[in-house]
Write a protein that binds this DNA or RNA. Structure first.
Lengths: 224, 224
DNA sequence: CGCGGCTTTGATGTTCATCAAGTAAAGTGG
DNA sequence: CCACTTTACTTGATGAACATCAAAGCCGCG
């Protein structure tokens, strides 16, 4: 395989701290894998051997509890996939699956651990990246918990609008998944979207969303 | 100051990876500080210069938002104080204050960064400790969000029972703080505690709590 | 083409927030 | 040390937000 990590658009996460001469070695040992929408990338309860990150696409991080399925966060490239528990336990405490066709890169944990020990700059970079991601997940959660139904749905819609960089997009998740993400019931998510449609804030055709009144949607996010 | 880090009961967090000969240097540069119940240790919005950890006592981590004050988590020794944002931003995104008389140790961030770069074992230890703490805060949040009022209050009471290692203890937080911790109103926290008292699960005299029926309290935690 | 899961709407009930009002406790200044 | 003020605590009544249940249409997939 031709090594192309030098050209990878997210190499800044790890590889700015690695000399080009060394990079080739890591590059060759890595596995790049395409996953289809719906495919599992990580399964809760399995042993952690790999260090996985998302190169392209969109994923959901979730966990199954006896109260049902709970979506912890959505991840895009630059957000980690191999997140929190990678260095804290021996088994994954959550699952990850692709929401759209995606590409992941897989390195062995051992190799990463060796890098941490050998390359202090890499270690620093990794720590700050992981903490930034953990913090954003946690604070997003704290923000969400202060909002009511309509505010939470607005947040999610605006999140998609921002990552797709458009006011028109196809929802990459079902109504049910949105409910699992914001901690409400499917019925009430549907009602919220319906309200937005009736109020002229959105056009909705199934999964296709067009935001007609963005400033209003932002107001709902901030004051609801 | 006599260096006593060798004897510190929480030196395992950091200092098992540091040679005794070197330890003395870090030990001398550190500041040990006693704080009284109610005192601030970290103030949201201030610049991060120090690496602070809790040696003894109990603290609350909280943030002020325009919706009011939100308690993010409680921390005891071995849980970090200088948590998430230490390596992810330049300002604290939360405050920390002591719930009981406590002792903190303060090192300079620069020194810690030097250590990370120089000592790979230290870096690994630090990463896994920080991730373990981040993960436990996040998953505690996820668990809480699946419970209703009485279940959340049970969880908090059982948490205190476990850290004080007794069924009789003085609540180190007010009803209002418990409300901010579990995301409910003060009135409803009081009602929940009142219910437990009426049902013979607790004896309550102000802040003094005695758990009379622990198995019932656990059932409430698990099924409510 | 038929089955199961997703979506949608309505009706009903539960859980919790809000408002109000009063008591107890704790801090403050003379 | 006491009067005063503020903050914490407590209970009840009411209403809002959300879950649950039910029923029906839709869509995709084997």
């Amino acid at each position: 395989m031709t090594c192309n990590c030098e050209l990878c658009h997210i190499k800044s996460i790890f590889f700015t701290t690695i000399k080009s001469s060394e990079l080739e070695k890591y590059c060759e040992n890595r596995i790049e894998k395409n996953v289809k929408a719906g495919d599992n990338i990580i399964v809760q309860g399995t042993v952690i051997n790999d260090f996985i990150y998302l190169k392209e696409g969109l994923v959901k991080l979730y966990r199954d509890t006896n109260q049902g399925c709970q979506i912890i966060s959505l991840g895009k490239p630059m957000d980690f996939v191999s997140l929190v528990s990678v260095f804290s336990g021996d088994k994954y405490s959550y699952s990850v699956s692709a929401l759209v066709d995606s590409t992941v890169c897989i390195l062995s944990m051992k190799e990463i651990q060796t890098l941490i020990r050998k390359n202090g700059d890499f270690a620093m970079k990794l720590i700050s990246t992981m903490n930034r991601v953990s913090e954003s997940i946690l604070f997003n959660y704290l923000d969400m918990s202060q909002k009511r139904l309509n505010g939470r749905v607005s947040s999610v819609l605006l999140y998609f609008s921002s990552i797709f960089d458009s006011d028109s997009f196809d929802l990459p998740i079902s109504r049910k998944e949105m409910a699992q993400l914001i901690g409400m019931t499917t019925e009430n998510v549907i009602r919220a979207i319906s309200d937005f449609r009736k109020d002229g804030i959105l056009d909705v055709y199934g999964k296709a969303i067009h935001i007609k009144d963005k400033s209003m949607l932002i107001k709902v996010k901030d004051f609801s």
